[in-house]
Design a protein around this nucleic acid. Structure first.
Lengths: 245, 245
DNA sequence: CGTTATCTTGATAGAGCTCAATTTCAGTGG
DNA sequence: CCACTGAAATTGAGCTCTATCAAGATAACG
């Protein structure tokens, strides 16, 4: 692994400092690891008794299929994200997960998680905070698809993805590795791959963002944020205990 | 009130039977009630230290505004739904809430809720189940906006709303009172009010659904479900403890 | 009754989709 | 080493769905 700490730990640090005991609890929680190859379905829609996972390395996505064969990707998961936490309590999973790259996951042990919650309420709150933030991202995605045009929506999404990656220690802020195809991105943004391709060219020509050869580069990220109405401090939802401004 | 039980209790019954002690805990949780008139903002985007609520009577909606003045409604809340539970842990609320009718809410007492969780894990799980189901609805909404055309999306949403209402004791399944304007519905479905108006006419002429005078009526709900790919059993996410089929 | 929000309809423009074809490039096998 | 293959990316032409602009009709309301 190229990092000293796992992505989830880095993410939770954004919420607040973690003590040594909490760090070892997080380590313990992620003890049972598994490798999965790219393109595998981890959980399928309608599956019963499905598990939840923490994604440690690699990318995955959650999606729903429609009758006409199309699919809508709900969210792209990067290291440190949960898979399937939301639907753990539903009888059947309401959507599918597929790996986009080779990944390392660890199955969430429900008992172990509950024990941890009892032992460290602060860690529990941090985890719930992370889950809430993931939900907020889905909401932002909904707003983007509903009310932003393709140009703005695409740039906005790529900016957001960059901010998420930076939080867990990937990318520089101005650029990041992005191992997904145009068709995956199109299914995420609710448009056809053909149209996305044209939009990506416009974005390149407008010097807003370059999506190419598995890399995303912002020539001028402040300008890109300005054009698309992206709040660069967006993901900086600190802990609720902060003082009002 | 026209019902013996409050909406939240009716909703949780769908998850599993509730004992007398649990019923009284739910009663206790909803002790501090407040009335709010239609059209009031309950929580605004960016608000700090906002509270969460249970909606007991009436309708509300959560939304985000965009720079161009437009808004996207994320979800419409009906009796028994939570307001703002998702963002309770974020420093600032990531979206606003406004009442669509006169409503009765009760502020969620975080302490009281946690006490309740300790006293009845089963009730805790039931509440988390309800919250998960609400999230699943947002996801379904995302899929609809991303991949369904206006005709199908509109019918699908109205079917879903009917199913939700029925679960908490409103409407007959084939019809329900729907006190929202076309422009609110348009902002929900991510289209202009003008286009929605045309789509509603098409739906009426196709005898799929009638949206008129504050009432929604399905002349043939099975056919409507068939046409729009709506699973009439969709919201019947029973408890996770069910045996596999 | 005037005022204002909501609903309705028409005409036109534009964003994004569909169908079709071509190019690029990493594998893969001969 | 090079032809073959298949997935991903790219470009063009035409059409459909939805937005925009404009104008009435209806209905709630002080």
């Amino acid at each position: 692994m190229s990092h000293l700490e796992d992505a989830l730990t880095r993410k939770l640090r954004a919420f607040g400092p973690l003590g040594n005991d909490e760090l070892s609890m997080l380590e313990e929680l992620q003890k049972f690891r598994a490798q999965i190859a790219a393109g595998k379905e981890v959980v399928y829609e309608g599956q019963q008794h499905h598990a939840a996972y923490i994604l440690r390395e690699g990318w995955a996505c959650s999606y729903k299929r429609l009758r006409d064969g199309g699919r809508q990707i709900i969210d792209i998961q990067i290291p440190g994200d949960f898979l399937g936490l939301r639907s753990l309590l539903l009888r059947t999973s309401d959507h599918s997960f597929v790996t986009l790259t080779d990944v390392e996951v660890c199955k969430i042990n429900t008992e172990g998680m509950l024990d941890m919650f009892r032992a460290s309420p602060r860690l529990a709150v941090a985890l719930l905070w992370a889950a809430s933030r993931d939900e907020a991202m889905v909401v932002e995605h909904l707003v983007g698809i509903g009310r932003r045009d393709a140009f703005e929506r695409t740039a906005h999404f790529l900016l957001e993805l960059g901010a998420r990656l930076k939080l867990v220690g990937y990318g520089t802020g101005d650029s990041y590795d992005c191992p997904i195809s145009q068709s995956v991105l199109a299914d995420t943004l609710g448009m056809t791959a053909i149209h996305l391709n044209r939009v990506l060219r416009q974005l390149r020509e407008a010097k807003v963002v370059n999506f190419r050869d598995g890399k995303v580069v912002f020539p001028d990220i402040a300008r890109a944020a300005e054009i698309t109405g992206f709040d660069l401090a967006y993901l900086d939802h600190g802990p609720v205990t902060h003082e009002p401004a």
